[in-house]
Structure formats: structure tokens, C-alpha cells
Design a protein around this nucleic acid. Structure first.
Lengths: 110, 110
DNA sequence: CTAACATACATAAGAAAATTATGTATATAT
DNA sequence: ATATATACATAATTTTCTTATGTATGTTAG
């Protein structure tokens, strides 16, 4: 993903959040949406993205559905029931984390 | 450190920030201050802390000064000139990261 | 008085999650 | 004809942590 190591550990949560909003998305689409959302700040690399998607699928949080569009392969991912539950708790953890980090780096606004 | 992988990548920045505020601190003190600041949310482990301090020192961002207090060894760390500069840019990156993550997980409040 | 807990350092083995590089293939624009 | 975009993938390596272990002293509770 991006250049900074700070994002390490948050990729799965980002993917889950996007799928919560968009019902189904394919890998390349996710990279583009993130780039767009963050004004280019965060560039998810393929070497990080695809293994992450495969892991989420293996863990039963995502289902995959293959499609051919314009003669190109696409793998659409969507949240499973379990994935939807897990997304809620991952987002809660993320918000807790963000609050905690704010407290540390900017105690005045905590 | 804590149990969540979200903190991965942020330990160095946390250490630098505390040293910016406190002039000089020793390892154990850092773990306690962080625990205190975060109401126990973030527990920095020794296996993460000491290698991080050694790396910051090796990179020329920290100076170390050994002391004996109550018959126990303490290694006081403080920012070098370079460390002070680096802290400013690391904190800027951290705030950018926090804003970006907020944008992603909570678009309404971006 | 002794066992647990706190203080204070350290390192080594292993796991997790990325980066970087590479590979395949099609479509479009210069 | 070449570069760029779309779309997937994996392998080698690096970074950063977790977990476990080791040394040593001081304090507190049963």
C-alpha cells in the first residue's frame, strides 16, 4: 500500500469498510476507490491487496464471484454474514485506535 | 505493544512524541506513561520497546545516558538535534494518517 | 520468610503484513 | 510501436511486532 508504514495493519479494515458501503467490489476497483477517497494519499499495492483479499475469503469474511467484463477477468467480493458482523467490530476497534492515537499525539484535542 | 495490530508502525512515533514533551525518559517509564495516557488501552511490550529504542539510537535520533537509581540501571534517552527535526515530520505524517483513516472509516466527519 | 509483583534492562524465535519485483493478458491512446 | 490502463497473481525480502525467555534488584502481602 502507500509509502508509510503507519497503514500497516489497517488494510483489512479498509477493505471491509468499502464492502460494507458498496455491497460488491473487485480488487482493482478497491485500489481506485481508495486512491480517490484519500486524494492519492493512500495507494494500495497489488502485492498487499490480493493476498489480503484471499485471506479474508479464507477466513470466511468474504465471498467471491467471478465475472468477465470487456473480455477481462474480474473477481467480485462481497461480505458474508460473518463478514458483516466482523466489519462492525473491526470498525469499532479502528475508531478506538484513532481516538487513542489522537490522545497521544495531540493531547489537547482528546 | 497492545493486542491490536493497528498500532503496528506507530511505536517509533509514539516514543519520539513523548521525548519531545519530556526531554528525557527511560524505557520502563515510557511503557508506564503510555499505559497511563491511554487508560491501559495500549501496553507497549519490552520485546517491541527496547529494539525500537536501539534502532532510533542507531539512526541518530536519540542519545542515551546511563544512570544508577536505587541500585538499578536506567538508560535515559533524549532527542538529538536530528531527532527533534524528525519528530516534527513524523508527527505531521501521523496526523495526516489519522485524518485519512477518519475519512475512510467515517466519511461524514471528514 | 518467602512468594509474588514491580522495576529495569535485554535478546531470540517466530508470525504477520507489508514492499518490491516479477509474471500473464487484454485494451486503449500516443 | 510503445506506454499506460485494466485485472489478476505470486515469490523473495524486509519491517515490525508477539511471545518467550533471561538477568537482577526492591517491595509488599500472606
Amino acid at each position: 500500500m502507500g509509502n508509510q508504514k503507519l497503514y500497516k495493519g489497517s488494510l483489512q479494515t479498509i477493505i471491509l469498510k468499502l464492502l460494507e458501503e458498496n455491497d460488491k467490489m473487485y480488487g482493482y476497483e478497491i485500489t481506485q476507490r481508495v486512491k480517490e477517497l484519500t486524494n492519492g494519499e493512500l495507494q494500495i499495492t497489488e502485492g498487499a491487496l490480493y493476498p489480503a483479499l484471499h485471506k479474508l475469503e479464507a477466513d470466511g469474511l468474504l465471498d467471491v464471484e467471478v465475472a468477465m467484463v470487456d473480455n477481462r477477468l474480474r473477481k467480485y467480493y462481497k461480505l458474508t454474514e460473518n463478514g458483516t458482523k466482523e466489519t462492525v467490530s473491526r470498525l469499532a476497534e479502528m475508531e478506538e485506535f484513532l481516538r487513542t492515537m489522537q490522545t497521544i499525539v495531540n493531547p489537547k484535542f482528546a
